[in-house]
């Protein structure tokens, strides 16, 4: 980060057109690179939640599955808020 960027951040000056180009590009490139459609991503989210829900009670509304890119690699990032841990009845 440069001093200019720090000042921009502190002054809330983040919605310049260059900044919005940057953030839109990051999102679209993550999808381009992985070749995953939003629909497929959502289906994956629901299936992952199904598996995890066997062990934990999850917050369906607040959960999300997103793609993030760093350098030329892309990661799948799941954010699944936990309501409570289920007691395993075996």
């Amino acid at each position: 980060m440069t001093i200019r960027e720090l000042l921009d951040r502190l002054s809330g000056n983040r919605n310049t057109s260059a900044n919005s180009a940057c953030s839109r590009l990051r999102v679209v490139l993550a999808h381009d690179r992985s070749d995953l459609s939003p629909a497929l991503l959502d289906q994956m989210r629901l299936e992952i939640m199904e598996v995890v829900s066997k062990y934990l009670e999850l917050d369906y509304i607040g959960s999300e599955l997103t793609l993030e890119t760093e350098e030329r690699s892309t990661a799948l990032v799941a954010n699944l808020p936990i309501r409570c841990v289920r007691k395993l009845s075996r």
């Binding site: 057109s17 260059a18 900044n19 180009a21 940057c22 030329r72």
Partner: peptide, 16 residues
């Protein structure tokens, strides 16, 4: 004026 992607932005995004 931050109205055009800077070289750093482009490099950051493309990593080439």
């Amino acid at each position: 004026k931050l109205d055009m992607l800077s070289i750093e932005d482009v490099l950051d995004i493309l990593a080439i």
